[in-house]
């Protein structure tokens, strides 16, 4: 009887995590897709300045600027539990895949949003770091940070 109370609590948390997490993730993906379409004409490439200068005439650009976009995304209780289960057996941690995917795309989008008016962004790099709950000794990843940065070229 005593063991049932925390069990139900976990179950409720799992259900809440699953339903709300799924809704929020869907919404986020919707927003990412919309904004990617909006910025589709602003190329962001990994080419260096030297490589880019071979392809295009750099003298037409009057200004270059470092632009960046960062985001911290967390997963829901359900997916965290799922990842914990996955840790026992190994294999693709599919519940983390969407987390990382969302974070990377969101970071690039924010970088693009920051560089409004730019003609293109070159030298784009992506960094990812994890944020654990209890200063490093926790084995589960709670949220990740994705950080995108590059050089924006303005006409």
């Amino acid at each position: 009887m005593e063991i049932l109370i925390p069990l139900t609590a976990s179950l409720v948390l799992l259900l809440i995590g699953y339903f709300i997490g799924t809704i929020l993730e869907k919404k986020h993906y919707q927003s990412i897709n919309d904004r990617e379409e909006k910025f589709i004409n602003l190329p962001s490439v990994t080419m260096t300045y030297r490589a880019a200068s071979k392809e295009t005439d750099m003298s037409k650009y009057s200004k270059t600027q470092l632009v960046s976009g960062g985001v911290v995304v967390s997963i829901d209780y359900f997916k965290r539990f799922l990842a914990l289960l996955r840790n026992f057996f190994g294999g693709r941690v599919s519940s983390y895949e969407t987390l990382v995917d969302r974070a990377r795309r969101e970071a690039i989008l924010r970088m693009k949003e920051q560089s409004s008016g730019a003609d293109m962004i070159i030298n784009v790099r992506l960094e990812t770091s994890t944020i654990s709950s209890s200063a490093g000794d926790s084995e589960t990843v709670d949220s990740i940070e994705a950080f995108a940065y590059g050089t924006a070229l303005y006409k």
Binding site: F78, L82, L85, R86, F89, R92, S94, S95, E97, D101
Partner: peptide, 15 residues
């Protein structure tokens, strides 16, 4: 970049 598997199904299986 993301797997098209049902998380609920995976959850039930693993658990």
């Amino acid at each position: 970049n993301i797997s098209r598997t049902s998380p609920l199904k995976e959850f039930v299986c693993l658990l």
